[in-house]
């Protein structure tokens, strides 16, 4: 069941990603991004990362994707084909080489990985994964990065307002 869900979601994520790069219409590219991000949120669920799945939905699908759709509409070149560089085959080659190299390493490395228990479903599991001590960790070991992230968001908000202000 989880395997089936994974392959469905992975296919959706890849199709969405390919749509971003190949779509002629900029709006379809944005929709492809939306599909891809939502599918990745589903992938997080299959990985027992419930909180991250929720965060992914709220921040990426609800925030970033909407922001990008706004940008697509405000820059008003939807109908103009989202064209590629003259040198686009070079980019494609680099991407393919990166994928081949990563896949080779990932498949041939002997990962010291064991799935923690067989209980994929967080309802049945011992609840030791996401949710229980994610906040504890965030507010103890990673407190300083957490506070810095808050500061970064504040700076980014003010910075975006200042940069985009009408003059």
């Amino acid at each position: 069941m989880v395997t089936l869900a994974f392959f469905f979601l992975a296919t959706a994520a890849m199709i969405g990603a390919l749509a971003v790069v190949t779509a002629r219409n900029l709006f379809y590219a944005a929709l492809g991004l939306l599909v891809s991000l939502a599918a990745v949120a589903g992938i997080y669920v299959t990985l027992d990362a419930d909180f991250l799945a929720l965060a992914q939905f709220l921040i990426y699908v609800g925030g970033i994707a909407v922001l990008i759709v706004f940008a697509v509409m405000m820059t008003a070149q939807i109908n103009r084909a989202s064209s590629s560089h003259r040198l686009w085959p070079l980019g494609l080659l680099t991407g393919a080489a990166t994928l081949a190299g990563l896949a080779y390493v990932m498949i041939n490395t002997e990962w010291r990985s064991e799935s923690r228990g067989e209980t994929i479903s967080p309802m049945v599991g011992d609840a030791s994964s996401a949710g229980i001590h994610l906040p504890d960790l965030l507010f103890s070991t990673y407190l300083l990065p957490f506070e810095l992230a808050g500061l970064l968001l504040l700076v980014a908000t003010i910075g975006a307002l200042v940069i985009a202000r009408e003059r």
Binding site: V21, S82, S83, H85, L87, W88, L90, G91, L92, T94
Partner: peptide, 9 residues
């Protein structure tokens, strides 16, 4: 990566 390298928009 392909998108970053190859697209103009």
């Amino acid at each position: 990566l392909v998108g970053v390298l190859a697209k103009r928009n």
